[in-house]
Design a protein around this nucleic acid. Structure first.
Lengths: 205, 205
DNA sequence: GTATGATTGAAACGAACGTATGAGCGAAAA
DNA sequence: TTTTCGCTCATACGTTCGTTTCAATCATAC
C-alpha cells in the first residue's frame, strides 16, 4: 500500500486540484472520484465524509508550512529584521511546490466558516502569536494591536495573491504572473514590510 | 410600488444579508424567501434566477461605489498624494453604510468565478485603469506593472479585512474591530500607502 | 361592476448532492 | 485450500436544490 498511485492518494490529488479550481462547494464528490478514476464510495471509505476529506487536505499542507515558518524564523537569529520575519511568515505559504495548491490555499484562507472552526484555533493561533511577538520586538514603537492589524493585512495580501494567481494574469494581459514564486514572495514581503514600517495611527487601540 | 417594504426590496435586503453571512453557495433561495417572508416563486418572478439575483445585488452596490471613487479622485485635485488616491480607491468600499454589506463585499471580491466573468470586465476594469494611471503619476519611479501588483495587493488588504471583519474580532479578543469605519480606512490606507512607497524590486517586469 | 394585467400563492418537478449498503474481489494468513 | 480482511464495485437512499406551473388574488382602467 501507500504507493504513489493508490486510491487514497489519487483522491487527495484530485480533490486538491478541484477544490482549488472550483471551490469546496463547487466541487462534488462525484467530480473528485471521476477525476481520480476511483469509485464514488472510496471517499467515504478512506475518509468518512466530505468535511473530513477537506480537513485531511488542510491539515496535510498546513503542518509542513507552519514547521517551515518556525524554522525560518529561528534561522533568522535572535534579532530578525521585519523583512526576515515577514519572509518567514509568507514564504512557506507562497512558495508551496505544486501549482495546484496555490488557489487551494487561497480558498482555505478566504473561507471564514471553514477556517475559524477547523483551522485557526488548531493550527494558526500559535503561529499568529509567535509572529506578533517577533514583529513587536523588531518594531517596538508599534502597539501590539497595530501589529496584529498589519499582520491581518499581510494575510490579506497573501491570500488574495494566491486566490487570484490563476486568473489575474488573464485580465491584465499577463502582467501579474505568479509563476516566479521567489520573485513573488520578495515583491509581497517588500510591500508589507514597508506597510509595517509606517508610523502608527494615532487612535490605535 | 417601490415602497420600502415591498417584495422585491425585501428579497434584496434578505439576500444581501444572507449572502454576506453564509456565502452564495451557502445560501438557498428558500433561506432568502423565508427570511424575507415572501413566497419562493417571488424570486423567479422579480429576478429570473439565482444568478441574476446575485448580479442585481452586485451591480446595485458596485455602481455607487465606483461613482464615489471617481468623485473622490477628482476632488483630490490634479496632483493627488498616494494617500489621497488610495483613500479614494478603498474608502468608498470600506465605508459602505450597512453592516450587512461588509462581508458581502468580501464575498464578491474573493470569488474569482463570479467576479471575472460578471463583474470585472464590466465594472472594475476602468476603475483599475484610472487608478493605476493616477498612482503612476504620483509615484513615477514605479514601473506600471509594479503599480498594478501593488494595487492588487491593496485589494487583498481591503477584501480580507471586510470578509473577516465579522469573525476576526472573535478570535483576537476584540482587537481587530471594524466598527469604526473611518479609523479602519485610515489604518488600511496608511499601510498600503507605505507599501506603495517601498522601492521597486529589481526584476519587476 | 367588470375586465385586465401584474403579483402572489401552494405545490410539484427533475436534477444533483452527500451518504449508505452489501455483494464481490484479491492478496495475505491459517 | 480455505479463511480472513482490506478494499472496490454498482447501486440506491433520502434530502435539498433551483426552477416551473398554474390557480388565486389584487389594484387599476374601462
Amino acid at each position: 500500500m501507500s504507493e504513489k498511485g493508490d486510491t487514497k492518494s489519487r483522491i487527495l490529488d484530485a480533490a486538491e486540484k478541484l477544490f482549488g479550481m472550483n471551490g469546496f462547494d463547487g466541487t462534488s464528490l462525484r467530480d473528485i472520484t471521476t477525476a481520480a478514476d476511483v469509485n464514488l464510495a472510496a471517499i467515504n471509505y478512506h475518509f468518512q465524509s466530505k468535511d473530513s476529506l477537506i480537513d485531511a487536505i488542510v491539515v496535510r499542507h498546513i503542518e509542513p508550512v507552519n514547521k517551515k515558518r518556525f524554522e525560518l524564523l529561528e534561522a533568522a537569529g535572535p534579532d530578525p529584521s521585519v523583512e526576515q520575519i515577514l519572509g518567514a511568515f509568507m514564504g512557506p505559504v507562497m512558495q508551496v511546490k505544486a501549482d495546484a495548491l496555490v488557489p487551494l490555499i487561497g480558498r482555505i484562507l478566504s473561507n471564514p466558516e471553514l477556517f475559524v472552526e477547523r483551522v485557526f484555533h488548531k493550527h494558526l493561533a500559535p503561529v499568529s502569536q509567535r509572529f506578533v511577538e517577533a514583529l513587536s520586538k523588531a518594531w517596538p514603537d508599534l502597539p501590539p494591536s497595530e501589529v496584529l492589524w498589519r499582520l491581518h493585512f499581510s494575510v490579506g495580501v497573501m491570500t488574495h495573491t494566491m486566490l487570484w494567481g490563476r486568473i489575474f494574469p488573464k485580465i491584465t494581459n499577463g502582467v501579474c504572473d505568479i509563476s516566479d514564486r521567489d520573485a513573488l514572495v520578495e515583491r509581497a514581503v517588500r510591500f508589507v514590510a514597508a506597510g509595517f514600517r509606517a508610523p502608527a495611527s494615532k487612535g490605535s487601540d
